[in-house]
Amino acid sequence: MNDKSTWEFGTRQVVYGAIGAALYGVFSWATNIFPLPAAGNVTFRPAVAVLIFFGAAYGPWVGLLAGLIGNTLGDALSGWGFYWNWSLGNGLMGMVAGLAMAAINDFRARGDIVKAVGWGIAGIVVGMLFASLTEMFVGGIDFNTALFGYFTPAFLGNTVVTVILLPILMIAFAAVASRRGR
């Protein structure tokens, strides 16, 4: 399923980084077309679960590339523009989630799923905190706005989506990988 060399950056990482990025872009765009109901300025982006899954399945480099490039793609598709700190924050989110790869042996095992979700939530904290706090320098917002206006809604929305969808993705991946034999 994966060779556990966490920090290797070869053909496999290039290809799955690109695939993760493209999927993140497509699903981010789709969320704009079919928005999920949310409270306040909390938005739910199912794409985040896909990003964290790619990190957990293929490692931190794939997570970084999928988040960094995927967010750029999603913004490009939706026409929002190019916001480097949010793209980098999304990359960090995937990268930290990718640290789970070394700890996962069986994508169906409850313990490994919990580990992946835990690393995913850690990734969400690191990535969204980075993006929110850099807005203090880029946009000149204050700490409270960064924390409560930017970080908290992003953290809540992304965590809910990850907790629900990541286990489903992992179980489905285990089935596909066992059929494929590698």
């Binding site: 290809v15 799955y16 999927l23 629900i164 969808l165 489903i168």
Partner: peptide, 28 residues
Amino acid sequence: GLAERIRRLAPLIIPVVMQSTVTGEEVI
């Protein structure tokens, strides 16, 4: 509820993601 609504997105997301992992091996 909210959790149910998110969970019900799985039939749209899973097939595309899983097919892409197979495609990835061919590209590699």
